[in-house]
Design a protein around this nucleic acid. Structure first.
Length: 404
DNA sequence: CAGAGGGAACCTCAACGGCG
DNA sequence: CGCCGTTGAGGTTCCCTCTG
């Protein structure tokens, strides 16, 4: 494969494949063979690009009907040769806009009488799936499908099939909007009361799931008030000191404050060594198998900082593999997330609680904890690279507490 | 993170057979 | 013969998982 071919984007590749489909009128399996891709993949491409692939038999038959018509055959000659029904051939020709020669002895279309089944008609109107309708009648779903077609209710049924889905989606959207408005309004009211009340509300809203045993609201308000007070003094008050008003330890305080975007007053300065050393650290972390996002997290810099440095150094960063990906729509386990999990674990939070606090699926938390022995050493190594000394635990917090 | 593809659910097509 | 139904292969769509 030439270098140019390799550089083709997926969009371009798709265009090429779609062109093959269009130009050659090949069947999906033939396109797959030609492109070396799976038929499923071809299907996906076609579906994404809104191209309809004709089923094999129908496509071939349509081609044959068209070819016979081009040869000047009459309608009944075509029907006899192909062995299809009057209506089918008529439909193909009509769709392709092909005229055929008149026959001296035309075949009469078969008249089909369909005995109606009112109970099935009702289900059709409700948009039931074939299988459900078949069950009520004790027949196969194919029998129902043929009945729908024969009774001329096909397009009506398809339309009814779509309706519940659209309705459900609309309902969900309205609910989402309503919740969002309510949340905004609650937050607004809380801030009107006081800054601490507002932050408390923000904290609760930042939690992704409902916690059965939430932190008491009054304690949180007091905590935020203590933070505000400490900030106003202009001193480097530690999390430990701020938390002492409500009896929370530093890690919990850090957790809560970070949730609403508040950082430490004590460690506002970058303890992270800058410049040349920083670049080396980034590279070492990435070589260790961390993603750029992970490196940014542990170095407490923004993702773009890492990105920019790597770019300037002309260093290509491979898309590092995640520790574990559970599902694109569920969660991915990164070293960053694992580190947060271990921090919470050491605070004796239960797995389900950790999941709630971090707003992730408990599957991810379970996996991280189960594999702590293999995952944690990498995190410890990463922190060692950053700090120059080996930490006892696989998260940043301990390093900072110990620094106190 | 995107691409590739597996799998399930659902749908479609062609061929054929039973029955009145 | 024509209607109604079954069978079996195969297509479509959506969701999910694995991989580099």
């Amino acid at each position: 494969m030439s270098e140019q071919e390799q550089r083709l984007s997926i969009e371009e590749k798709m265009q090429q494949i779609l062109k093959i489909i269009d130009d050659s009128a090949l069947h999906i399996t033939e396109v797959a063979a030609k492109t070396g891709l799976n038929t499923k993949t071809i299907s996906q491409y076609a579906w994404r690009s809104d191209v309809r692939l004709h089923p094999k038999f129908q496509a071939n038959r349509k081609k044959r009907v068209a070819a016979l018509a081009q040869e000047g055959k009459t309608l009944d000659e075509i029907i006899t040769e192909i062995g299809l029904g009057y209506g089918t051939v008529k439909k193909y020709l009509h769709k392709e806009n092909i005229q055929v020669n008149k026959s001296s002895n035309p075949i009469k279309p078969r008249t089909r009488v369909c005995k109606r089944k009112p109970h099935i008609d009702e289900l059709i109107a409700k948009g039931y799936i074939l299988e459900e309708m078949a069950k009520t009648d004790g027949v196969t779903r194919e029998a129902i499908r043929t009945y729908i077609n024969r009774s001329g209710q096909y397009s009506f049924w398809r339309q009814q099939r779509e309706a519940p889905i659209t309705e459900q989606k609309n309902r969900e959207e309205v609910t989402r909007q309503l919740i969002s408005i309510l949340k905004q309004r609650t937050l607004q009211l809380a801030y009107q009361e006081s800054w601490a009340q507002g932050k408390t509300e923000e904290y609760f809203q930042s939690l992704h799931r409902v916690n059965k045993n939430p932190r008491p609201r009054e304690k949180l308000v007091k905590l935020f008030e203590a933070y505000k007070k400490a900030e106003e003094t202009g001193e480097n008050t530690s999390f430990e000191e701020i938390g002492s008003v409500v009896g929370y330890k530093a890690p919990n305080v850090r957790w809560i404050l970070n949730k609403v975007g508040i950082t430490s007053l004590n460690f506002t300065k970058q303890y992270f060594p800058r410049n040349k050393r920083q670049n080396e650290v980034f590279i070492e972390l990435i070589d260790l198998g961390l993603t750029k996002t992970d490196a940014a997290y542990f170095c407490e810099v923004t993702y773009s900082t890492v990105e920019m440095r790597m770019q300037r150094l002309g260093r290509k960063v491979p898309n590092a593999r995640l520790i574990k990906q559970f599902s694109p729509n569920i969660e991915r386990l990164t070293y960053r997330l694992a580190s947060q999990v271990y921090e919470a674990q050491d605070l004796r939070f239960e797995n389900t609680k950790i999941a709630k606090l971090l707003g992730v699926n408990s599957k991810v938390v379970d996996y991280a904890i189960e594999h702590r022995e293999t995952i944690a050493p990498t995190i410890i190594k990463a922190i060692e690279i950053i700090r120059g000394s080996k930490p006892d635990v696989p998260y940043l917090q301990s390093a900072r507490i110990n620094d106190c």
